[in-house]
Structure formats: C-alpha cells, structure tokens
Design a protein around this nucleic acid. Sequence first.
DNA 1: ATTTATTTTTTACGCGCGTAAAGATTTCAG
DNA 2: CTGAAATCTTTACGCGCGTAAAAAATAAAT
Lengths: 343, 343
Amino acid sequence: MGERKIRNMEEFASVSGISRPTVSKYFNDPTSVRASTRARIEAAIEQYDYRPNIYAMNQNRQLTKNIGIVVPYLADPFFGEIVRVIEMRCIEAGFSPSLFSSHGEPEQEKDILDTLRSLKPAGVLLAPLGRLSDKSAIETFCRDVPTVLFDSNIDGMGEAFVGSDNYSFVSQTVEYLSRTGEPPCFFEMKHPANPNANKRRRAYLDMMERLQLEPHVMQVDGSGWAFEEIGRKGAHDILNRQALPTNTVLCSNDRLAIGFLSACFEIGYKVGRSTGDDLRVASHDDHPFSRYTCPSLTTAAHDYGSVSGHAVETLFRLIESGGRFQRREETLFSARLIMRDSA
Amino acid sequence: MGERKIRNMEEFASVSGISRPTVSKYFNDPTSVRASTRARIEAAIEQYDYRPNIYAMNQNRQLTKNIGIVVPYLADPFFGEIVRVIEMRCIEAGFSPSLFSSHGEPEQEKDILDTLRSLKPAGVLLAPLGRLSDKSAIETFCRDVPTVLFDSNIDGMGEAFVGSDNYSFVSQTVEYLSRTGEPPCFFEMKHPANPNANKRRRAYLDMMERLQLEPHVMQVDGSGWAFEEIGRKGAHDILNRQALPTNTVLCSNDRLAIGFLSACFEIGYKVGRSTGDDLRVASHDDHPFSRYTCPSLTTAAHDYGSVSGHAVETLFRLIESGGRFQRREETLFSARLIMRDSA
DNA sequence: ATTTATTTTTTACGCGCGTAAAGATTTCAG
DNA sequence: CTGAAATCTTTACGCGCGTAAAAAATAAAT
C-alpha cells in the first residue's frame, strides 16, 4: 500500500511486469488473457490500486462498456425497484449502467436521448413516456444506438420490447371479480399517457364481451403523472354523483386505485369483499405501496424479476449480435393475481 | 441539414470558419468568447448538429462538467422528487448529472464512490445510507472529490451538509399533538439506518421534557429499508398487546406511519381526531403518499425545494471555490406542519 | 488616427489509451 | 523432445481534444 500512485497504464504495466498492450487487453476483457497473466495483473491492481482512465478508454473504443437506462418517472417506486435489478445485472456482466429519468417530461426524454447518444453506450434500456414521447426522436435514436424498450411498447421502435402482458392482468382480475360478485366497471384516465392503459381498456372490453357482460368504462379527467390525485378527484366526482354502475371497480393501475381508495375512505364508503362492504376495488401493477392501502389492494402483479431480467438479457444478446436483430422481438410476461382485502 | 456529418472539432471549426482553439474555448465556457463569435458558433452547431466527443473532452480537462448524485434508496419516491429538482438545476448550470442509487446496500454505496472517483466529477451530492455507510470509504472519497452531503449528515464528512432540521419537525408535531390531545408516544425502529431517526428521538425526548410530559419511546424490531412492513408488523405487535401508553402515536417517519395506519385499519382501530376515534397518528417527512393514507396523514413536511436547491447551490459555490471551504457548512431547513385527518 | 486592451489565429505538443504488426516466448499436444 | 498454436512483447501510430505561446486581428479608448 505504501507504493506511490500509478499515473497511467504505461507505469502500471512496467511496475506489474507486463506489457501495456496486454494490460490494455485485460481491461477490455479479463478473460482474453491467460489465467496466469490475469492473476498477475489482478494482484498488481490490488497492490497499486490502479484504475484506467475511463475517458481515454472510451475515446477510441468503437463500443463502450456503458449501458443507458431510461425510465419515465423515478418518483414511482415501481421503477426504482426495476432499476435496482437492472443495474445489478449490468454490473455483474461488466457494464457500467447510467441511469436517467424523464420525470414525466417529453423535453427531458429528448434531451436524455441526446446525452445518451454522446455517451456512445453499448446499448440502452428505454422505458418511454408513452403517448407524449417524441416518436421520431426515439426512432432516430434507435437507429443509432442498440435499444431494447421495456414497460411501455411503441410499435416498431427499438430492436425488442420486454414487458408485461396487459391482457393477462385484466383477464385475471375481470374473471375473478365477475366470478365472485358483480362484474366490474373500469376506472381510468381519459387521456392516459401510458400505452399500457389503452391495452388494458381493450382487454377489459374484450373480456366483458367474452363473458357476455355489459362493460362500463368510467373515464376521469386529469393529465400529468400525479395519478393518485387524479384517481382521488375522479372517485369523489363519480361517487358523489352516484354514477357508479356496479359495486365493483377495476382500476387501470394501482396508483389510480390508491387515490380511489383514499376518496372512498374520505366519503365513508366501505371497501372490501365482506358482507356489509359497499364496494369492491381491484387494480393492476402490484405497486410497492398497494399492500398498505386501506383495505389492502387486490391487484395483479407484474413479474418484476422476469421483466427486468429478460430485458437485460435481451440487451446483452443484442449487443453481442452487433446491435441488430433479424426481426424485432416482443416478450410479454404474465401477471399474477394478488388476493388482498379490497376485492 | 443536407451537410455531411462532421467528424471532429477540427472539421467543425473549418466549416464554421473559426479556429479550433476558439471552438474548444467555447465548449468549455460559451461566455468566454466574444458574443459575435458565440453566435457564429451556435449557428454552426445548429446547422451541422455537431457535438464534441465527451470522452476526449474530459480526458485532459482537469475538471469535468459532471456532477455525481448519490441517493440511498431510489424506490423511495421522496428521493425521486429530490433528484428531479437537483438534476434540473445541474443541467441549467451547464453540468451533466450522473445519478446513482445505493439501493440500501453499503457495498453498492462503496462501489458507487469508486465509480464516481473515476468519473472525475466537478462535484458530488451525496445522500449517504447512514449508519451502515462505510465511514472511512466516504471520508477518503470526500478528500478526493468535492462533496456536499444532503439528507443524512455524517459528522465532519464532506465540505457541507444540507438537510432538514429534525428538531423543527419534532417540536412542531409534539407541540401540536400535546396541545390538542393526549401527549404522543414515539414510534420508531430499534436500529434505524438513518441518523435522522436518532436526532428525531432525541428531539422528542427533549420536547417532552420541556413540556414536562412523560416520554414513551416504542421501538420495534426490523432491519432493512422495508419501513412500511416494519411499521405494520410493529403496530400489530404493540396494538395486540395493548401496549400503547397513550392514544396518540408520533411515528419517526411517514413510511413507518403508513405501515402503522395499515395495521390499525386491519385491526379495526379508528384513527383520527374526531370524537369516537381510537387513536391519533402523526409523523414526519410528508412522503408523497402520505396524502393518500386512510386517514390522510398529519405530518411535518421537508422543505423539498429549499433543501435540494440549496444543496445544489452550495455545491456550485464549492466548485467555484476550488473544492474546499474554509470551514464545513451546515444548513438546516425548518419543517412545516401539514394538518390532515390522522391527528 | 493612434494607442491599448481584448480576442482570435496559428502552430505545436501532450493526454491516456486502443490497436495494429512483427517478432519473441510460452504452452501444450503428439 | 519437437513443432504448432496460443499468448505475450516491442514498436509505433492515431484518436479527439485541451492548452500553451506567439503572432495577428479586432475592438475600445484616447
């Protein structure tokens, strides 16, 4: 530890008794050198605490070891959890993840893509804003940088999409709700930013038709990413007008449901599936907070682990394939019904 | 737009009719060149869509334009919101923020500091894990990189700390609760990871002594960052044992309170400040979800905007001062009582 | 118009590392 | 032990830009 600080790879190579090109090769891919050489280098790294200058490394390399991760809204703990898994796997595979959040702003998303382009990443995992995304900006970006979309699909963009099967969410909740009580009406935002919302509405309509039940879609106003407040206000409005066509409400997503339940509590509606309860409420996503609503929220859960795991794995395959797939891949994971107390 | 792609600054300089050193100067600081020159360069940037290679730029620059942001736990929407404000201001000031989350893991935090060091950032905003942080790793890091701590203070580390005044939180809630009903007992984790928790307990004890009231501290088991579940389990335990010394509970933070309220609902305790309610519950932080608990949570709010704004401003000053302050700065912002329905 | 201060151009070198090519060395199968 | 294959060393160049220094051009002040 008492050794003086190594200034560059040249110096490091000389003190470790190995030629610089071999050291360089090692840092590009530790498995590309003989095991004995690798051991010597790693011993020297330990001893001298040397780390190559990442800027000089990336300057000439055609492909960096960076991976970009873009999420639409970090204040949603759902994405916090996804990011955790993704980052972990990137690091395990020897990549450096760079995390960005659009914070719900299309302008931000565009700027992030610009920034990412100049980072020359080996690949990017992009969860787009959805309806508000600048489609052409994303399209251009995907042509330059190997990209896997996740969470929200945008038709044809990127080399692959990995997400959850919205039909699987809705079919399970609708089936369960209509089997155990009154068939559900569907509660959602009028102009959802997220394309999954549209898929869920269609799945609801389809399921209701299959079951030969009459569908009711309740659409509430509101824009932005403050879903809870939109759900709460919308619920107040509907409940005060007594405009609910059934005693069972299926919310498009958990954050709306959280607001809905909060309104029910404020008004004094009892939510649950016991006798004496006024209303059943269920939803989709298994948001981290959904366990702690009052009552706890019956919902359909993303397969978090599989989605993030497969997204990363797909990106690695894409990188190894040189950034292009023969044809765009789409992988959807099924939901799992989470029975709690609200329905 | 039909122009062919510019490959480097040399080419860009020649097509824009300006010498390369001047162009380089411009990219270092646009205000350092004459206004007319700046206009010509910016017109050319627009026309040719040129962006300098960030790796080559940062290689030789003594100081990059990067700013590191480290948060302890991204799945907490509190930090999502803070990050949004911080990133915005960094970008406005011409810096590139790099976001990292320790995800509650001390090992991760250490790795992030290593990564950050090699990013050679102009400065770092660090919200440490707290008790579990590797203090010596952070200390070493702060010697190498100009760092401002925020959210959680660690004595003497970094050049400055910006956060909330825990005493201000607790004094307001305790004062309010004891003025309007039974004095509160204090509900917290036995081994809190976050140093703010300790400060809040001490503030509670101090306030109770001042008011000549008997303090009661209820400590529940549990480790990790799943505060809601720890709060819920702890509440179940305490409520089932009827071990609550008063009808008023002050939780150390909102996430514990969210779990506490969920347990109350499950057991059938009515929480609120109306006649007929069994229990009053209040807390601290004004977590984004605290508005949507049942009942909505009376709490004390961080001055989010001031904390994040002042943290960024302090870092900018630190950078301009060459990375060192005469003496360590500590800035604490007062809390604001948020009256809702739970107490 | 002349002087002075400011800005830009010209020229040139260096940063830390990637990488190519040719020769030397080591490893391992037979 | 021999020879081929794999790996390493030596040498050398280039990447895109920062930046220093001196000369030239421009702007501001007298």
